[in-house]
């Protein structure tokens, strides 16, 4: 094919032909088979290039999306309300302790004996927060209800990589591991815990599965078992959830009322400026 024809074809696809050239183009298509075929090859080439360009652009957008997600971790819209609620609770409890007990008493009983005018700290947090079974001896006698704070902050871990691709293989039965992860992704945490038990021992040692199990346990208010899994994970070296594990470990401690331990882990997260830096800072301050 001559260069003039090539140029004509290329400019036709760039919408750059003048009316006379357009007529010439149409004439050749109708009368010259080789030219008509060349136009087809050109269109096919452009389609291939378009697909390649699209693939490349999609790759760039995906990378950008991941960057954006990292910068702004997903939060449910109710979060801000929960945070406000938490702050109110913390503030109210804080005031309860800070504000002299005697003042409260005076308010209700102005003629109370003078000894009562001196503030007396409560001898035990149980008087305010009668948690039935504090799990550890080192529970901080704090004004913060770990479970409430936990509820405000806990959100089972999610990222897109956890979602199983169902396109094209919807008819295939998922493997037990896929089934477990699918249940997790769908938010069926109790069912996922049952599915975990049916995994083979190799899959039960898999760090992803263990991490997800710990999240299911936290959701099921079994913070103690979750903490033991997460503690184990921190000792077994790096995994893809390296930055997530300490955060969920802190939440496990919080759920079981181990405030000191939770604060210590949060402190580490804040120091390392990890992905949960902001939440950890807020939570640490709230517990302080």
């Amino acid at each position: 094919m001559d260069e003039i024809a090539q140029d004509l074809i290329e400019r036709y696809h760039q919408n750059a032909l003048n009316p006379e050239e357009k007529r010439e183009f149409q004439r050749r298509i109708n009368t010259d088979d080789d030219f008509a075929k060349e136009v087809q090859w050109h269109e096919l080439a452009l389609e291939a290039i378009r697909l390649e360009g699209e693939k490349e652009l999609r790759r760039r957008l995906t990378t950008k999306g991941i960057e954006l997600d990292k910068k702004a971790p997903k939060r449910p819209t109710t979060f801000s309300w929960l945070w406000v609620l938490l702050m109110v609770v913390v503030l109210a409890l804080g005031l309860w302790f800070i504000y002299p007990k005697s003042t409260r008493d005076e308010a209700t009983s102005p003629t109370a004996p003078t000894e009562k005018a001196f503030p007396t700290l409560p001898s035990s947090p149980k008087s305010l927060d009668p948690a039935p079974d504090p799990p550890q001896a080192q529970i901080k006698p704090a004004s913060v209800d770990g479970k409430k704070v936990f509820a405000a902050y806990f959100e089972p871990y999610r990222d897109e990589s956890l979602e199983l691709s169902v396109r094209g293989n919807a008819a295939e039965k998922p493997s037990p591991q896929e089934y477990f992860q699918q249940l997790y992704w769908e938010g069926k945490y109790s069912a996922a815990l049952i599915a975990f038990d049916s995994l083979n021992s190799f899959a039960q040692q898999d760090k992803t599965n263990l991490f997800l199990k710990a999240n299911c346990l936290l959701h099921a208010k079994q913070g103690k078992t979750a903490a033991s899994i997460l503690e184990d994970m921190t000792q077994k070296g790096p995994s893809r959830f390296m930055e997530q594990v300490p955060w969920y470990l802190a939440l496990s401690y919080l759920q079981t009322g181990q405030i000191e331990k939770a604060m210590s882990v949060l402190d580490e997260i804040v120091e390392k400026k990890g992905v949960h830096f902001e939440n950890a800072t807020q939570l640490y301050q709230a517990l302080k």
């Binding site: 096919l44 080439a45 452009l46 389609e47 291939a48 290039i49 378009r50 697909l51 390649e52 360009g53 699209e54 490349e56």
Partner: peptide, 26 residues
Amino acid sequence: KIKFLHAALKSMSSQCRELLVARYYQ
């Protein structure tokens, strides 16, 4: 068709691919 077109492009050098995308896609 997508598979076929991808295969054709893949058979080319990466520079050719990049140049073609730059010129005809971008």
